[in-house]
């Protein structure tokens, strides 16, 4: 017999169910209970950078909109700093970088207002330092060696839960007008199938002068969105 490793096991996930709004967005469930619902204001009034709107729809395998989804966003400020002690730098007062939205019960549309995040430092090689990018340091056939370089393209981390989703799905929103940075992004470059990369890129339009990024999420089937095990 070998010695026991005394690690605890992570609590297993379960679906958020159809009534997730009761707990996490009670106003949408149809009643006011909290003085302050959390997650409505991602960037706050003092955030620097470009004000944007991000919106979309979540689609199931039959092509139908999923109308009981909750999405949470986690992003850096316009200078690439997260509102967290382990992210070097400072964020503006009131910048939380986190938000949650639910889909409209009738249409399945969701959306949030925020600022466009700046690029964030990529991870370094094990024990190494982040260095400036060098062209020859692209990944090999096993996807190794991407570390030790550069920055990640601007992105918003997204977590998706709903009835029928047993464990929350992680994905990232990238921006169409950052083509150069997206092409260099180490996570984007981990996606072996180039045609799947576009599932992570939000398209940009202007509405009343405000940039609106469209990001539809396909849970299953043709053009299925890339989801991550983070």
């Amino acid at each position: 017999m070998v010695q026991k490793l005394d690690y605890l096991k992570e609590t297993p996930s379960q679906t958020a169910g159809p009534y997730v709004h009761i707990g996490l967005a009670p106003g949408a469930a149809g009643f006011d209970i909290y003085q302050q619902e959390l997650g409505w204001d991602i960037a706050g009034p003092n955030a620097k950078g470009e004000r944007i709107r991000v919106e979309g729809i979540v689609i199931d395998a039959t092509g139908s909109p999923v109308k009981d989804v909750m999405l949470e966003a986690w992003q850096a400020n316009s200078e690439g700093v997260y509102a967290h002690p382990e992210s070097p730098g400072e964020v503006e007062e009131g910048f939380r970088g986190w938000g949650r939205v639910i889909t409209d019960f009738e249409t399945g549309e969701w959306g949030f207002d925020t600022i466009k995040p700046g690029p964030v430092a990529a991870r370094a090689a094990m024990g190494g330092e982040v260095r400036p990018a060098a062209d020859e340091e692209l990944q090999d056939a096993y996807g190794r060696g991407h570390a030790g370089l550069r920055q990640m393209a601007p992105h918003i981390n997204l977590w998706i839960v709903a009835r029928g989703i047993n464990i929350g799905l992680n994905t990232r929103i990238y921006f169409e007008d950052e083509a150069e940075a997206n092409a260099e992004d180490p996570v984007m470059n981990l996606i072996e199938w180039e045609r799947r990369r576009k599932t992570l890129i939000a398209t940009r339009t202007l509405r009343d002068g405000l940039p609106v990024y469209r990001f539809d999420i396909k849970l299953q089937g043709e053009d299925e969105t890339v989801f991550f095990d983070i």
Partner: peptide, 30 residues
């Protein structure tokens, strides 16, 4: 998990892409 019927059309078919963690994953809201 077909015993839980709603999961049938709401589950990705492709494998998840495993990421080594960066500052995007090791930070979170406070």
């Amino acid at each position: 998990t077909p015993i839980y019927k709603t999961s049938v059309t709401r589950s990705p078919q492709y494998a998840l892409l495993s990421l080594q963690q960066s500052v995007s994953e090791i930070t979170g809201p406070t």
